[in-house]
């Protein structure tokens, strides 16, 4: 599949949503006082964890209250 034939208009929303999830997770990571496990590790998981990274962070990493 070459570059021009990629349907960017269709894929763009996915990229945007993923970016929002990553940004929101990172903002939250900075704001919360403590996480389950080291913060830097969660930063790595959020950024490199693809679609699932931010989700895993919100469910497992975030320590509520």
């Amino acid at each position: 599949m070459d570059f021009e034939s990629i349907p960017w208009l269709l894929i763009l929303p996915i990229i945007i949503i993923q970016l929002i999830l990553i940004v929101v997770a990172i903002i939250d990571l900075i704001r919360v006082r403590s996480t389950n496990g080291p913060k830097w590790l969660w930063a790595v998981i959020i950024i490199l964890g693809n679609m699932i990274g931010p989700i895993i962070y919100f469910i497992v990493g975030r320590r509520n209250e």
Binding site: M1, P7, P13, I14, I17, L21, V24, A25, N64
Partner: peptide, 25 residues
């Protein structure tokens, strides 16, 4: 304030879009 109102719907939205796309391509 804990962003659930944002991230949970975004997860459903993400899978809602990616399912037809990946199947097609």
């Amino acid at each position: 304030r804990n962003f659930k109102i944002l991230w949970i719907p975004l997860v459903f939205l993400l899978f809602g879009i990616s399912e037809p796309l990946t199947n097609y391509y």
